[in-house]
């Protein structure tokens, strides 16, 4: 296995808070193993920046100290990481989150530009960190089945066709990272919304209030300032879980059918 250490130049977006104006800072990082993940590389850089920050300064040289970035599980499932790397959500390579991106995808001497998600509905709150509460709000509008705890029928009382359960699971794999919105030129959240609507619409338990759900979630999505889907398919190309825009078609169908019944 080739194990040549890499030196890299990083251009990282720095922004103090939601109100401040941000800009790029350029850093270098040396001796990165190709086996490290991109986030581990950022850990190394941050560690270096903290040390630099701890030393007394002769003159102010701009943005000092570590930069903030969201990350948590580091195994591709929590959806916390939200970096736009070299012009792609979650960076080069397909069907991965940022934490699954490894440095062997880059070359020694590369310049890597890292930006936060950019969308009106996801304000930047610090450096590379954005606020994605809009997603919570959309789901609060109807992304659930109205059942109380307890008092439900036996799990096997309603058979569900295997293909339906599988397709529902395809959609349910959504991790809510927001790469779809970040990558969409329209800032549309349709892939995210459709994943939930479609997953529940395919199951008899969710079918019952399908019309209500589609209307409520689309209305909330529109209200929060997400854009209109124009079927560019960029979302499904960047989705770390490979969720298909066929689910958007189902959402459209559910929504229009519900509206025509009104």
């Amino acid at each position: 296995m080739e194990n040549k250490l890499m030196n890299l130049t990083l251009k990282i977006w720095r922004q103090k808070d939601a109100k401040s104006k941000g800009g790029f800072e350029t850093y270098t990082v040396e001796g990165v193993s190709p086996d490290t993940s991109l986030l581990e590389m950022l850990d190394i850089l941050n560690n270096k920046l903290i040390h630099e920050d701890s030393e007394p300064v002769a003159f102010d040289k701009g943005c000092r100290g570590p930069f903030a970035f969201d990350h948590d599980c580091r195994e591709g499932i929590c959806g916390m990481c939200s970096l736009f790397i070299n012009g792609e959500a979650h960076g080069p390579d397909s069907e991965i989150t940022t934490c699954q991106l490894h440095m062997r995808k880059f070359k020694d001497g590369d310049t890597i530009t890292i930006e936060p998600w950019r969308s009106a509905a996801f304000p930047v709150i610090r450096d590379l960190v954005v606020e994605r509460q809009a997603f919570d709000k959309i789901l609060q509008a109807g992304g659930f089945v109205n059942v109380n705890t307890g008092g439900v029928p036996d799990a096997n009382s309603i058979p569900i066709a295997r293909d339906d359960a599988e397709e529902s699971m395809d959609a349910a794999a959504c991790i809510g990272c927001g790469a779809c919105v970040a990558t969409c030129k329209n800032g549309s959240a349709m892939l995210f919304v459709s994943a939930r609507v479609s997953s529940l619409a395919l199951l008899p338990q969710g079918r019952v209030e399908g019309a209500r759900r589609a209307k409520a979630m689309v209305a909330k999505m529109d209200e929060l300032g997400f854009g209109n889907c124009t079927n560019t398919q960029a979302c499904q190309m960047e989705c770390p879980k490979g969720i298909s825009i066929a689910h958007i078609a189902r959402l459209n169908r559910e929504f229009l059918a519900a509206k025509f019944k009104d």
Partner: peptide
């Protein structure tokens, strides 16, 4: 298990 199925958790199923 009953609760999760009622919530719409897509557990693996047989044919």
């Amino acid at each position: 298990i009953d609760q999760c199925v009622a919530q719409g958790v897509p557990f693996a199923r047989e044919y």
